[in-house]
């Protein structure tokens, strides 16, 4: 279980995250929705150590993630697919996936092969084009590669930041199908999305973030029918 408690984050004098508390139970899909600049990405960055918190706590099972060296977070089963995919554009697809398994040592060779097979099975297109440079991929393909790379570490939870950004409606549907499928395999998902409608449809629970504070939270289907949410985020 991922537990964020009374989290505060500053950028200089700007109080970006104010007393945010979030819980993600094992096996859930939880989504964090809100307008641009509400602080969604900052929360994910703080969880995986890319941004330092001012106060508060982030615990994953029994580990205090805020005290961890950022590069060690992944060894606790916490993978993060960042906004804008961040694939290694000058590396091949295969090399990108191997980077996803960076945390494994020499003796875990079999594990890496097993993970690679697993990812290739789910994304046959990555297998077909494993020797192609990731930089030549389209946005949708890069997103799949970014998810594939995260799966290489055999994570227990995946934090996904705007996976549907900049994709065509068809690909958006595909990405959300992938999220559902990943979750069915037992991986917990914390999803940050601007596409609130799609996010609320796949999620179990949701938090609505407004200028750094949690405004609303609850069952995702209920929020989907909440008038305030509909007006503010669903354009209806």
């Amino acid at each position: 279980m991922l537990k964020v408690e009374n989290l505060n984050v500053h950028y200089g004098v700007i109080h970006a995250i104010e007393d945010v508390s979030i819980e993600v139970n094992d096996g859930e899909i939880v989504t964090l929705i809100g307008a641009n600049g509400a602080g969604k990405t900052t929360i994910l960055h703080t969880i995986t150590g890319l941004k330092k918190a001012t106060s508060g706590s982030v615990t994953w099972d029994d580990t205090n993630l805020l005290a961890e060296e950022p590069s060690k977070i992944i060894t606790h089963g916490v993978a993060h697919v960042p906004e804008g995919r961040h694939v290694f554009v000058d590396m091949t697809v295969r090399e990108n996936l191997e980077m996803g398994a960076y945390m494994y040592g020499r003796k875990d060779k079999d594990k890496v092969i097993e993970r690679m097979d697993h990812v290739f099975e789910r994304f046959p297109r990555l297998k077909e084009r494993q020797n192609q440079l990731a930089g030549t991929f389209s946005g949708g393909e890069q997103q799949m590669l970014a998810v594939g790379r995260a799966l290489m570490s055999d994570p227990k939870i995946i934090l996904m930041d705007e996976p549907s950004m900049g994709l065509s409606p068809l690909l958006v549907q595909e990405i959300f199908d992938i999220i559902k499928e990943v979750n069915k395999q037992g991986i917990t998902v914390l999803l940050v999305e601007q596409n609130a409608k799609m996010a609320l449809k796949v999620a179990n629970r949701a938090y609505v973030l407004e200028t750094g504070k949690i405004k609303l939270s609850g069952d995702a289907k209920e929020l989907l029918n909440n008038d305030d949410v509909r007006k503010a985020y669903l354009g209806a």
Binding site: L50, S71, T75, H86, V89, M91, M99, M103, S153
Partner: peptide, 24 residues
């Protein structure tokens, strides 16, 4: 080598490098 690959990853993308477990 693994270390060499990490050395190529770091200049390309520090965020992604950190997230896959490279101590930049």
């Amino acid at each position: 080598t693994k270390l060499g690959r990490a050395m190529r990853a770091v200049p390309e993308d520090k965020i992604a490098s950190t997230l896959v477990g490279i101590n930049v």
